[in-house]
Design a protein around this nucleic acid. Structure first.
Lengths: 115, 115
DNA sequence: CAGATCGTTTGACAAACATCAAACTAAGGT
DNA sequence: ACCTTAGTTTGATGTTTGTCAAACGATCTG
């Protein structure tokens, strides 16, 4: 598959972007490239304790939602934030989420709820 | 149950809030009270085609995430946005999401993905 | 109290999701 | 050619989620 799907800026859907961001692991991944840097898919580069196929899955969710851009280069893939597109399409969203991340990182991962 | 759980402002978690907002139905509900108004839980008041128990479930998710406040008054419950708390805790988040809602509403609800 | 109203809770069910492991594809390197 | 490296795809598994329906609880009204 040499063609990776990326939604056009105008095809991004807010509910989809929110769903992509509503996962602690993916939120952590986004934080790693928040500075505009690029990173390969190697698990060591992201400081996360999941299997590489799981990581691959998360990158796909982020990419298909329009949050990240995946560039193919030889046998590596380089991932970066689509900050300009996100800022144009949903002004303020990314900034608000990124601002909340340091605090989020302090918590252990939890998917459970209290009543 | 006379005590409904509402997270304190500082206990709100961004991943939880994002998860609460990452649903087309709940996004629609939030849009209805975006102007600061209060609304009872009656399905007719929200213009949504789900069973009342489903609606009750969504209100709980929103409340437990800290997005909405539910006030009990006799046999009615009045729901409103916790805008001040959200703005204080996650500045810009709500505004960014609300700004994207009119466009979101134009689309049919979809939870499925394309490859 | 009896009945109606408003909403929650519980149970059931299918779809979606996060995860891992193993198989696979593609691109280098030797 | 062969082996390694980088990442995806597929299958399996357990969890979570959205939904409805039916039962329940609580409050108001006659």
């Amino acid at each position: 598959m040499t063609h990776l799907f990326h939604p056009a800026r105008d095809d991004m859907r807010i509910s989809r972007v929110l769903a992509a961001l509503a996962d602690p692991v993916r939120l952590h991944l986004v934080a790693q490239v928040a500075d505009g840097s690029e990173r390969s898919c190697a698990a060591e580069e992201w400081g996360v304790q999941v299997h590489k196929s799981t990581l691959s899955h998360h990158f796909r969710v982020l990419r298909e939602a329009g949050v990240t851009m995946t560039r193919v280069d030889g046998r590596n893939r380089w991932i970066r934030l689509r900050r300009a597109d996100l800022d144009a399409r949903f002004p303020g969203l990314l900034a608000a989420v990124l601002a909340a991340l340091p605090e989020e990182a302090a918590h252990p991962q939890d998917r459970a709820a209290a009543s």
